[in-house]
Design a binder for these strands. Structure first.
Lengths: 127, 127
DNA sequence: AGTAATAGTTAGCGAGAATAACTATTTAAG
DNA sequence: CTTAAATAGTTATTCTCGCTAACTATTACT
């Protein structure tokens, strides 16, 4: 009931910056995590590895992410480039405005409550 | 954060019945509404008309929906067939189990609270 | 009567995600 | 210490779901 309108508007906002949701969610994760492997991203987003590979490839072509040596020669640990960080912060402004707009009239307590409950549900699903 | 795991699991459950989310959401709407035109479904799901046409066509081929005369010769008013109603009830059992499972430990008050707030957000987005 | 608007369809495109089958590397077991 | 199993990632292919643009058919408005 909420997802489609939310997705539609978010894609509209992100489109202004030549980004899609899948790309944005990885920028977001890397910015807040410093770095991550494909598998970590895969688990975080609940998508399969090939999906991650494709999106990461695009982000690499755009110059937003780069890979750094991991503890293995198998794993590919990724992090944001300087350009990627700048991009994140730039888009963040737009996304913040969007969030503020759609949360108008919802108190901070209510927001926290919803996040807490959604997290509980998430745990139930992934269990 | 919640959508992908939810979608994955739901599709898994629906897959047991040879259905996809898009189809299920229309079955759901028609069952609870008696009948609807393409435009009504389009608005309800926040999806464009061609998308509705395609999904409805599939449901028609599967024998779950049929069209009845509307107030126009333009509009195509759809309703569930007997088979469609039976299918809905059959799948409903699976979906109920799924919902119960993922809502374990969430009180009814909390559920209502979340629904209320999500509805408020939805209104903000569509405004 | 002639133009607007509304309902739906067709054609074509693209995002996003999945599975299956593969390579490369690392870990564990006999 | 070598071989089998597990892990990380890629490639190829397929599917759903959704979009826009351009169309037909019908109805409403001026």
């Amino acid at each position: 009931m909420l997802y489609r309108p939310f997705e539609n508007r978010l894609n509209l906002e992100l489109g202004k910056h030549d980004l899609y949701r899948a790309q944005w969610s990885i920028l977001y994760y890397l910015f807040n995590n410093g770095s991550a492997t494909h598998v970590e991203i895969s688990n975080y987003l609940s998508v399969e590895k090939p999906t991650v590979t494709r999106t990461i490839t695009r982000l690499e072509q755009q110059g937003y992410v780069e890979h750094i040596p991991g503890k293995d020669r198998r794993e590919k640990r990724m992090q944001l480039t300087e350009l990627g960080k700048a991009k994140y912060l730039e888009v963040r402004v737009t996304v913040d405005q969007y969030e503020e707009e759609i949360l108008k009239g919802i108190s901070v307590e209510e927001q926290q409550e919803v996040i807490r409950i959604m997290n509980d549900i998430r745990k139930n699903i992934l269990k």
